[in-house]
Design a protein around this nucleic acid. Structure first.
Length: 586
DNA sequence: GCCGTTTTCGGCCCGACTGTTTTCAGTCG
């Protein structure tokens, strides 16, 4: 699929045109890049099936850019791009990632100092040569070095789940201050993106000066970037930056809308405002000079004729059209999960006993927990064999009998009084290279449910990998496929699989695909969740906990599900236990 | 370079901040 390659080239060409101070072309190329990126079908396929004209259907792509796409598909190159690269042969992507460095500065740095990449940039910044350039001064050199350090250390982005706890902690501290009237997260953290560049916090305060002082003196702070009465930027000990913006009360809603983004969503909402003869900016919605909304986000959306849109889906990927049509999805809620189905116990080397895991699940307010330990192929994880699974079944039955019975008879189901909480037994069996699993069918059939996952041979070629997983999906004992694409965010790409084919078989067999909530997995990811939903495939949001504290990761999985437009009915473990067990049986 | 239920020409989202200037360019979100 060449879509992303083409988008990347258009983005880079936009930067090059900006270097050349060409007006509006950068805007057009970026818009086309967004359109290409957002196209779900393989652009090469589109071209081969329908020809050049079909390319012009992509938003932002006209005659000229369609020709460039054709050229890339046919020759693997775009001549104009190659020429631009030759004229200014620099590592645009890396250089642009340094804070404060953009196309114009890159051009100057190349022309005056022959700086092509981060290494050159670092060298010249250290030698002090950059400070001598026109438009650069003492501080530029130092800022560049700081920026390079940051890029190197973090690749610029952090896992949502890694930074969220400390952000929540800081928010709690700030919200306790008597001169803070309102405080909330904005930006990509509020949208629950899987990785976060920096964190935005918005506040309304009776005493901005005091708040700014308090914020910059937090024990988490290692460096204060800038400090005014409107905005304070700090770097935390964990290495990420937080911007605190202090907002006038009457503009809080518009500021929240604006700073939550995404950028694409904001461009679209502003455009809608313009169409209605209004102006939308971070200060409010205006008709002429008259402010007609600003205090709450709901007011903002209402003023431009839209229903309020949940932050997780503000990506301009159809939510605006849905809001106009009154067809926004009712996203699965953060309180909708009734039990976690993928939890490991001390039986396979996890931190906690089954009883401790169950206790933690009860404290989360769950109705059930699924214990699904690794199986024998994974010796390193102390995977269980058939005999151990049957022993474990006995222990779980014993534990289940110890949970209190409900006091009222309404809980009576099928002549049997259900207890308030139940442990159900599964296992996370391994899908071997040939698609078989490492536990015999007669034992799998005795468990309440079975998860199967790929833990080996992740580099298998696409067709073989797809067949391998499909074979497991057709095993009638298997209910759930765990972390279906095998990715590790920022570490390992997805396995090569034909996801559309997987979805077809999932629909046909009723197999459930997991949304793994582990912050470095989040697998399925948002776009795959949306595809699964559209295909009518059921999903389960699980944590893959190896320790009871991991149970709390469920919110990242739910967030990912919401980003994928999933509703409660798409998620099997938002169902009561009876319905869930019924689904497994089917 | 793209685009049109006012337009096939004349617009394109737009305000704030930083570091460098002495009135502003470049970058960011």
């Amino acid at each position: 699929m060449k879509n992303l390659e083409i988008a990347k080239i258009f983005y880079e060409m936009a930067d090059y045109f900006e270097m050349e101070e060409i007006d509006f072309k950068p805007f057009a190329y970026r818009k086309a890049a967004v359109g290409v990126e957002a196209t779900k079908e393989d652009i090469e396929e589109i071209y081969k099936k329908w020809g050049l004209k079909a390319l012009e259907e992509i938003p932002g792509v006209g005659k000229n850019l369609a020709l460039k796409i054709e050229e890339y598909i046919k020759t693997g190159k775009i001549l104009r791009y190659e020429r631009l690269k030759k004229e200014t042969p620099v590592d645009l992507e890396k250089l642009m990632s340094v804070d404060g460095i953009g196309p114009r500065k890159i051009k100057q740095l190349y022309q005056k100092l022959k700086i092509k990449n981060l290494k050159d940039l670092e060298k010249k910044a250290k030698s002090g040569e950059i400070a001598g350039l026109e438009g650069f001064g003492e501080k530029s050199g130092k800022n560049i070095l700081d920026g390079i350090e940051f890029v190197k250390k973090s690749k610029g982005r952090f896992l949502l789940g890694k930074i969220m706890p400390s952000v929540e902690d800081i928010l709690k501290k700030l919200s306790g201050l008597e001169y803070v009237l309102e405080i909330t997260m904005a930006g990509s953290a509020r949208r629950m993106r899987e990785t976060i560049g920096d964190v935005d916090i918005l506040a309304v305060s009776k005493n901005p000066k005091k708040l700014a002082d308090f914020f910059s003196a937090l024990p988490e702070t290692v460096k204060v970037w800038s400090k005014g009465l409107k905005r304070v930027s700090i770097r935390t000990k964990s290495g990420f930056d937080i911007d605190l913006r202090i907002i006038p009360e009457k503009s809080f809603g518009s500021a929240l809308q604006y700073f939550t983004g995404s950028k694409e969503h904001n461009i679209a909402t502003r455009r809608i405002a313009i169409e209605k003869g209004l102006k939308l900016n971070e200060y409010g919605v205006f008709r002429g000079k008259k402010m007609i909304a600003g205090k709450t986000e709901q007011d903002i959306y209402r003023a431009i004729g839209l229903a309020w849109i949940p932050p997780e889906i503000r990506e301009n990927s159809g939510e605006i059209e849905a809001a106009i049509a009154g067809k926004l999805p009712e996203l699965v809620g953060y309180d909708d999960i009734k039990g976690d189905l993928h939890c490991h116990s001390s039986w396979d080397g996890g931190e906690n006993s089954i009883e401790q895991m169950a206790q933690a699940a009860i404290e989360m307010g769950y109705e059930y927990i699924g214990i699904s330990d690794h199986t024998k192929f994974l010796r390193i994880e102390q995977g269980l064999d058939e005999k151990q699974l049957l022993l474990q079944k006995k222990e779980i039955e014993k534990l289940n009998n110890s949970f209190p019975l409900p006091s009222h008879s309404s809980a009576e189901v099928g002549g049997e009084r259900r207890r308030k909480f139940r442990i159900i037994q599964g296992c996370e069996t391994n899908i071997l290279a040939d698609g078989s699993v490492d536990i015999s069918d007669d034992v799998l059939a005795q468990l309440d449910f079975v998860i199967a996952g790929v833990h080996s041979g992740l580099k298998m070629e696409k067709e073989k990998m797809t067949e391998r997983i499909i074979k497991a999906m057709r095993n009638p004992n298997i209910d759930i496929i765990s972390h279906p694409t095998g990715r590790l965010i920022q570490e390992r790409d997805e396995c090569q699989i034909d996801f559309d084919k997987i979805l077809m078989v999932a629909k046909e067999t009723g197999i459930i695909l997991e949304i793994n909530s582990s912050p470095d997995r989040l697998d399925l990811k948002d776009i795959n969740i949306r595809k699964a939903k559209e295909a009518g495939v059921k999903m389960a949001i699980n944590t893959d906990s190896h320790d009871k504290i991991h149970l709390g990761n469920i919110k990242y999985g739910i967030a990912q599900a919401r980003r994928g437009w999933a509703e409660k009915e798409d998620i099997v473990n938002s169902q009561k236990l009876n319905n869930l067990l019924g689904y497994f049986k089917r």
